[in-house]
Design a binder for these strands. Structure first.
Lengths: 134, 134
DNA sequence: CAATATGATACAATAATAGTATCATTATAA
DNA sequence: TTATAATGATACTATTATTGTATCATATTG
């Protein structure tokens, strides 16, 4: 059971890497060196973060990426939604309106509670809260 | 993001179905009728539950399955471990001993906390707690 | 011994995850 | 103004996990 997939994880670390840099604009190459992750994969992730307005980008020589938001405004929950879709711990496997068996689905209700807590906790984890302060 | 996969879900409901029955021994056919799920898949799941000592089985005519434990002793966490492996929300994507970048991995620590809470909550959800009392 | 259960096991289909590769476009510096 | 170095867009591939299916073996009961 995984909470965070690899692209979310890489996104988090890349954002941390950028946030910790003195320079505003950080190149893919620099991040690759820091994190030692596949360049192509990282590029794709950064492009998505750019489209989702978490990063700004500069093309051309000396280009790269910069945070579009302050680190305390970027939370894990946002990144997970971008890379993993909406968080739904309680998807019912029985497609019909009601479960055919467990009426009022007590299971679903209980998992819903867990989901709410998890979401609240994930919201509280921001890039700011996990970077090494310079 | 899924907390529970389909086989875990089916296992839970099958166990509920058996727990709610007056008869001790319940056949696959009966469970299939109750839950309307693929028979072969269900059989596989029940066989696993049998091997894992959550169910007892009787072969031959009039055979079927019976709970090996009282419903309050069967928790979601057990079923998830059987069908989904150990719960590890915080698997680090960086295989090396230390993350190359985020030292002391604050992220991991925070996710660990979430994991502990989730596990505690899942432990508390038992078959007893979600069956329709007869 | 025939019928009806589960046991064991191998196989297949689908979807999600993870990663690669290539060409287009833009910006800068010489 | 052109070569170069960066990202943008996009299509493709590989791997793994999930979700099943099918078949034959074995045991039990009437």
């Amino acid at each position: 059971m995984k909470l965070i997939t690899r692209n979310t994880d890489y996104a988090i670390r890349a954002l941390c890497c950028i946030a910790e840099q003195k320079e505003d604009i950080v190149s893919v190459d620099h991040i690759v060196q820091c994190l030692e992750i596949p360049r192509s994969f990282l590029r794709k992730i950064l492009q998505i973060l750019n489209k989702e307005r978490m990063l700004n980008s500069c093309k051309g020589r000396g280009g790269g990426f910069a945070l579009a938001l302050p680190p305390e405004k970027i939370s894990l929950i946002d990144l997970m939604r971008i890379f993993q879709g909406p968080i739904k711990l309680n998807e019912c496997k029985f497609k019909k309106d009601d479960c055919p068996y467990v009426s009022d689905c007590l299971l679903k209700k209980k998992i819903d509670e867990i989901e709410k807590e998890v979401i609240a906790k994930l919201k509280a984890i921001t890039i700011e809260s996990i970077i090494k302060r310079r």
